[in-house]
Design a protein around this nucleic acid. Structure first.
Ligand SMILES: NC(=O)c1ccc[n+]([C@@H]2O[C@H](COP(=O)([O-])OP(=O)(O)OC[C@H]3O[C@@H](n4cnc5c(N)ncnc54)[C@H](O)[C@@H]3O)[C@@H](O)[C@H]2O)c1
Ligand SMILES: NC(=O)c1ccc[n+]([C@@H]2O[C@H](COP(=O)([O-])OP(=O)(O)OC[C@H]3O[C@@H](n4cnc5c(N)ncnc54)[C@H](O)[C@@H]3O)[C@@H](O)[C@H]2O)c1
Lengths: 216, 216
DNA sequence: TTTTTTCTGTGAATTTCATCACACCAAATT
DNA sequence: AATTTGGTGTGATGAAATTCACAGAAAAAA
């Protein structure tokens, strides 16, 4: 069954890896390679070849035992699987240190996914244009979220403001939130949320550093 | 067996949750509560009560069927399990937008884990002191990592510099790296690495936003 | 031509992770 | 005094994720 239909359910972890594979493949293609074997892609992604092939089953792009996968075709198949054909817009809430770093970083990285609007309550930060992204006052949040058909938001405001803004986002039809504030937001389960907390990541890193350092 | 010894192997996910529990408990304690039941902690952490109790087995702090867990004691037991008794120091490499945001955010958040040194190759950023953190020229990296007994590093430099710096970190005995650059770093498996890539997280969020939005 | 090699695609086995369900306990209730 | 209530700690069970292992296919080697 080479051309598996792509409406099968797929795990969060698997999607994560598919996104990584695509990124690695784009880089790999730039180095001039036209084909790649699962074990090579696995090496780049730091996974096993079997897992790579399993993950790719969801995408349904066939490889050949002789040459492996055609890189260009696989990238296209992955994009077809992962991206919205029309493209998706995202919003940034909070144009502080972190918000600006994110804006800078995400600029022009993805042809189908762009941060097109940002919001802040500090007048000095609005009415400007950073990297193709229009900056508005926070009072214009709802109307712009709706009018730009935005379903993804990045929260980078102080924790104290996080809850009330998240409620507004939900009301405006947001379906995914990347939450950089340390606040825990109550979210219905038909909305995706990912909480980032660098302090917690640092604690985890420190825990394992200690374990690894004490071994041998 | 109430007082399980804590040298059992514990999964990465479980450690992650224990760190979250502690944070939630500290907040909970501030609200004046002295005791907590597993189902309440589960609710705060958005997990099940059974999983909370399972996770806590590793810590070995007993709860009572009548009052649940004593919050103060549990926080202490978690800290005892998670933290280095002496404390750990971390280093930041790259004092740019992102680096400064991280430095600001992590400042005074943890009594046993501190970013004590930072490095940059831009002279205008060194020889200053941000939030108790000394900023040095990158050439002083190795000696300071060693002299401060640092095992955890945060990489927030341009991707092009990531590989060579990571090699220096490894040589200096680093055991964990939080990598914010999009570079993939080859790391021996006795060193912990966590790769952050907001673009990839955003892609994932967009994927699930799309799926959730198309359902019903 | 026949055999060997090598890699894909995927059922089956295995391992890892999460939940279930219950023995046990102490307080509250009858 | 007996019974009910509600929560912990954990063995047993179930589900999910990963790895194994092999049929099949096509090129390369013999
Ligand atoms: N997850 C992490 O690792 C991490 C790292 C750094 C910072 N943070 C968190 O991310 C958030 C932003 O961090 P930062 O360093 O950029 O802070 P910052 O203070 O530099 O930026 C916050 C921005 O939000 C704006 N703002 C404040 N209230 C607002 C409101 N009600 N509506 C709209 N905009 C508002 C401010 O004007 C400011 O521009 C904070 O919650 C911080 O704790 C998280
Ligand atoms: N993971 C993410 O989501 C994310 C988000 C934003 C930025 N980033 C990445 O994080 C890194 C830093 O981002 P930023 O926005 O802070 O960039 P930045 O340009 O503001 O900061 C980079 C800093 O590194 C310093 N630097 C450059 N070369 C160096 C070297 N060889 N040794 C020491 N210091 C050096 C520069 O002087 C500068 O201060 C970049 O790789 C960027 O792509 C990642």
């Amino acid at each position: 069954m080479k051309f598996t239909e792509k409406n099968m359910d797929i795990s969060r972890r698997s999607v994560e890896r598919l996104i990584l594979y695509r990124k690695l493949l784009i880089r790999y293609e730039e180095s001039g390679e036209a084909h790649i074997f699962s074990h090579k892609l696995a090496e780049l992604a730091d996974r096993t070849a079997a897992q790579v092939r399993r993950d790719l089953m969801a995408v349904g792009f066939p490889g050949s035992p002789v040459n492996g996968y055609q890189v260009k075709g696989l990238i296209k198949a992955l994009s077809n699987f992962l991206d919205d054909p029309v493209g998706q817009n995202a919003a940034l809430i909070g144009i502080g240190n972190l918000g600006r770093a994110v804006l800078e970083y995400c600029w022009k990285r993805h042809p189908k996914l762009k941060i097109v609007v940002a919001f802040d309550n500090n007048p000095s930060k609005v009415a400007v244009n950073i990297h193709d992204c229009e900056c508005y006052d926070i009072s214009a949040l709802e109307e712009n979220i709706v009018s730009h058909n935005i379903k993804v938001a990045i929260l980078a405001i102080p924790a104290t403001a996080a809850f009330s803004i998240s409620q507004k986002l939900l009301k405006s039809g947001i379906k995914a939130i990347l939450n950089f504030t340390p606040a825990r937001l109550p979210i219905p389960d038909n909305v995706y949320i990912e909480n980032f907390d660098i302090m917690r990541s640092l604690e985890k890193a420190a825990y394992f550093a200690r374990k690894l350092d004490s071994k041998k």
